[in-house]
Amino acid sequence: MPDLFVLRQFLPAVTGTRPRDDGWQVCELDPAADIADSVSLLVDLAAATHAPALLASVLDGGHAAVEGFSGASGYWRALLPGGSGAGPLPAAETARHLVEWAADAHRTVAAEPITELLSAPEPRRADGAFEELLSLLGLPGTADTTSGALDGRPGCVTIRAWTLG
């Protein structure tokens, strides 16, 4: 995945890449990586891979910003773990976008559990909430939590892309 033209500018910041089940690939970037426009990056990545893409970044305070793009759902953003900041849209509307994103990734999922995760008031570690979201999106086992993905350091960025092939 780092060989994709859209990711070439980030090559100096790539700290690891891993192929995952069902064609998913993970590209981890150093916290110092400067992603000036995450929406454009996701759109370009989806165009380059012909499939949905996810971007997760650990923020200060233990939250993760998770962004996604696909042809069906367009762009969406959610903050994990839940609480007051599910993102710019209400949790139920964000969940609808995530369900559409999952459908574009050839997964059938229910909106209610995603809405519950986005609305959950209890504190969770960013990596655990991200793993739960991936599972709710029908992508269990796609993350390797032993390799440092979303390791809780502010600025840690993980790009997950579905590739056909």
Rank of each mutant, 00 (worst) to 15 (best):
P2W: 02
P2T: 13
V6F: 02
R8L: 08
Q9M: 11
Q9K: 14
F10R: 04
F10S: 05
P12W: 08
A13S: 15
V14K: 05
V14F: 06
T15W: 06
G16Y: 10
G16H: 14
T17E: 14
D21Y: 08
D22S: 11
G23K: 05
Q25T: 13
C27Y: 01
C27F: 02
P31F: 03
A32D: 06
A33S: 15
I35W: 05
A36M: 10
D37E: 11
S38F: 07
V43H: 05
L45S: 02
H50W: 09
H50S: 14
A51P: 01
P52E: 06
A53Q: 00
A53E: 02
L54G: 00
L54M: 06
A56N: 01
S57A: 15
G61F: 13
G62I: 04
G62T: 03
H63E: 10
H63T: 12
H63N: 09
A65G: 12
G68H: 01
G68N: 01
F69Q: 01
S70N: 07
Y75H: 05
Y75D: 01
R77E: 07
L79H: 03
L80V: 03
L80C: 01
G83R: 06
S84H: 10
A86W: 00
G87Q: 04
G87D: 06
L89W: 08
P90Q: 09
A92R: 15
A95I: 09
A103V: 07
D104I: 03
H106M: 14
R107F: 04
V109Y: 00
A111F: 06
E112Y: 07
P113C: 10
P113Y: 08
I114H: 01
E116N: 13
E116V: 14
P121D: 10
P123L: 14
P123W: 15
R124F: 09
D127H: 06
G128E: 12
G128D: 11
E131C: 12
E132G: 05
S135M: 10
S135H: 12
S135A: 14
L136R: 02
P140V: 12
P140A: 13
T145F: 10
T145W: 09
G148K: 00
A149T: 04
G152Q: 04
R153T: 13
P154F: 07
P154M: 08
C156K: 02
V157P: 00
V157I: 15
T158G: 05
T158Q: 04
I159T: 02
I159A: 01
A161S: 13
A161M: 11
A161L: 10
A161F: 04
L164N: 10
G165N: 11
